[in-house]
Computed example of a mutant assay.
Amino acid sequence: MAQLIYSGIMSLDGYTADRDGNFAWSAPDEEVHAFINDLERDVGTYLFGRRMYQVMSVWETMDTSDEPAVIQDYARIWQGADKVVYSTSLDAAATPRTRLERQFLPDAVRNLKSSSDKDISIGGPTIAEHALKAGLVDECRLFITPVAVGGGLRFLPDGLESRLELVDVRRFEAGAVYLRYRCLAQQAE
């Protein structure tokens, strides 16, 4: 049975994007990116909402030939995984190995988890909110960047109550911190 993992880069004050939707401040340095790549190697399927999918789909066509090895590596990892995009506004998926779903159905995700032999990653706080509130997320992996943005799109949704167990911590040279939590119990407000 696969694990459903919610991971993301966030500000110290808990946001994945600021009030203007900007997330340039979250770009990982080479050390953090290499660590993320190693974590992502076990992912067989990515679950995305429309906006996160459109941001991430650049990895399908971006010319990485002049990019550092860590960038080339991530492009290969992303291209090698299946993707499920939840959207009511997209007509079709623009990348290979991608399935379009009109709504997030918790039972369908439970079935995917039970039938998958590789981990499943859920990307983006909007779609992750559905999985978190349905109690489907097995782990949260947070990369905290040493910046405060003062507001915006939160990593965790309002109204979520959850018990977590810290299972791993790592500090990076530039000040970012990785926290890995196992989800024990979740309950929405």
Score class of each variant (00 low, 15 high):
A2K: 01
Q3M: 13
S7P: 00
I9C: 07
M10S: 08
S11Q: 04
S11E: 06
D18G: 06
R19C: 05
D20S: 12
G21S: 09
A27Q: 11
N37V: 03
D38G: 09
E40Q: 09
R41W: 05
Y46V: 05
G49Q: 08
R51Q: 12
M52G: 04
M52W: 02
Y53L: 04
Q54G: 04
V55F: 14
S57D: 11
E60C: 07
M62L: 15
M62S: 09
D63F: 06
D66V: 05
D66G: 13
I71V: 15
I77E: 06
W78N: 00
Q79E: 09
Q79A: 11
G80S: 13
V85K: 09
Y86H: 10
S87G: 05
T88M: 08
S89V: 13
L90G: 05
D91F: 05
A92W: 09
A93T: 15
P96A: 14
T98D: 08
T98F: 10
T98R: 08
E101F: 07
A108Y: 02
V109Y: 03
N111Y: 00
N111D: 15
S114N: 14
S116N: 12
S116F: 09
K118I: 02
S121C: 09
G123M: 07
G124M: 06
P125T: 12
T126L: 13
A128P: 00
E129P: 01
E129Y: 03
A131L: 07
K133T: 11
G135S: 09
L136Q: 03
E139R: 14
R141K: 11
L142V: 14
L142Q: 14
F143S: 02
F143H: 10
P146M: 12
V147F: 00
A148Q: 13
A148C: 15
G151T: 05
G152Y: 02
G152I: 02
L153P: 01
F155W: 11
L156S: 06
G159T: 08
L160N: 02
L160A: 03
L160T: 04
L160Y: 01
L164M: 14
L166G: 06
V169D: 03
E173F: 08
A174T: 15
G175T: 09
V177P: 01
R180S: 14
R180F: 07
Y181W: 02
L184E: 11
A185V: 09
Q187G: 07
